[in-house]
Simulated assay, not measured.
Amino acid sequence: MQTNKENNAGGVVASSAPQRAPLKETTKSNVVNEADGLHKDSVNSDSLEDKDKQKWSLDNFEIGRPLGKGKFGNVYLAREKSSKFIVALKVLFKSQLQKSNVEHQLRREIEIQAHLRHPNILRLYGYFHDAVRVYLILEYAPRGELYKEMQAQPHSRFDEKRSAKYIMQLANALKYCHTKKVIHRDIKPENLLLSLRGDLKIADFGWSVHAPSSRRTTLCGTLDYLPPEMVEGKAHDEKVDLWSLGVLCYEFLCGKPPFEAESNSDTYKRICSVDLRFPSHVSDKAKDLMVKLLRHSPRDRLSLDGVLQHPWIGQWTEDRSTVPPPKK
């Protein structure tokens, strides 16, 4: 099965659906410069949070170039006028959201992402809306989509050192999410961005859920990344993210998901039987990590602490301990 890789810039899913008229960009004398305002000190970011207690509007921003197009709208580079702070402004059309019946999903996404504070999770600074659009004020990730970065590599895959770095950062971010009772449920390269320094950022929480009860039954996410319990229609918990982490590690190292097949039904079969095959270039330590994550039974999967302490992570990263605790 050929995986359909969508452009998910800033969390907006790409689509061939016709786009509405874009926002008008600022004049040439006022165009947002990406290099200007990227020194993200706490004063600038905190000023956005303080401002959010008031009422935001489009008048607060200078609009720059488009960063991505999607089914429900577009993402633009923007600068908050008073602080000069660079952000990504995600613009969604209410009519498209209503037509697809995803207003509740967007509300949940905003509620979850706005309360997360971690260096490997894209910040949602605030939101506002008018009669036609909803606007999300997001952290700007200058190096863009991790999927595009991967596609630009030889053989469309990362080497083991780079893969280990990303898996370590993602494991840290997911560990933080799970402490907040947040299950992501849609980890894949298209939902990950890169900061100016090349650090991974989880950018899309469209399928995430806050689940204190820890048992869900909704079938969601991307086919190639679905765990057996979802495919088999069973209840699931935060351990679905462990499976996705294993699938992601495989795609980083091999350039494609591990259970890819000619048809959806064949992919389902390979997932349920955990039909895992490794190319010869993958190291034994990397195989060991993936085998321990890609277990049919959720309770048998390696924990996130186990991932962070795994010899493969330790081999390629200077510090396998967790990152410093994020701000409350």
Rank of each mutant, 00 (worst) to 15 (best):
S83T: 08
R215E: 14
S303C: 09
L194C: 00
L276P: 03
D224T: 14
C249K: 08
W312Q: 08
S283W: 05
V91E: 12
K94E: 05
L92H: 04
S283I: 03
K161M: 12
V31A: 11
R79C: 11
G126P: 08
L38Y: 04
N4I: 15
Q315R: 11
L248H: 04
G255L: 06
D59P: 00
K234A: 09
L248R: 01
K84H: 08
D288W: 01
H129F: 09
T26L: 15
S214L: 10
Y166S: 04
A9Y: 12
A203S: 03
L106Q: 04
L242Y: 02
K90C: 04
R185E: 09
P142Y: 05
D237V: 02
H178T: 03
N7A: 13
V134P: 01
C272S: 13
F205I: 05
K180Y: 02
D46M: 06
L196A: 15
L302I: 03
A141M: 01
F61Q: 00
D52H: 06
E25D: 14
T3N: 15
L92G: 04
P298K: 09
E111D: 09
A261C: 12
E34V: 03
D41L: 03
E260W: 13
L67K: 00
K161Q: 13
R79Y: 03
L193H: 01
K40P: 10
C272V: 12
H39Q: 14
R320W: 12
T322A: 11
D130M: 07
H39C: 05
L308T: 12
R216N: 13
Y140G: 03
D204I: 03
Q98L: 13
A211T: 10
P66S: 02
P18N: 12
R107V: 14
D130T: 07
P325R: 13
V282P: 00
R216G: 13
L124H: 06
K327Q: 13
R270A: 15
G206M: 06
P325I: 13
K180C: 09
E6G: 14
D224S: 09
P119I: 09
A21K: 14
V132E: 12
K84E: 11
I137R: 01
R185V: 05
A21F: 13
D275M: 10
R79D: 07
I86Y: 06
L294W: 05
L245M: 03
L58E: 00
E160V: 07
N44L: 09
R197Y: 10
R197V: 07
P311S: 10
G255W: 12
H104L: 13
Y125I: 06
I86F: 04
P325D: 14
I121K: 00
I110E: 05
H296C: 15
P18M: 15
W56R: 06
Y166H: 05
A131M: 10
A173L: 04
V231A: 08
T26C: 14
L302C: 04
F61G: 01
V13F: 14
L77F: 01
S163C: 06
L308D: 12
D266C: 15
E229W: 02
R133A: 07
C249H: 02
P325Y: 15
M230A: 08
H39L: 09
S208L: 04
G144S: 04
Y268W: 09
V91H: 07
F205D: 01
L77I: 00
P258V: 05
P227G: 02
D237N: 06
D305P: 11
L219C: 08
V247S: 06
H39R: 10
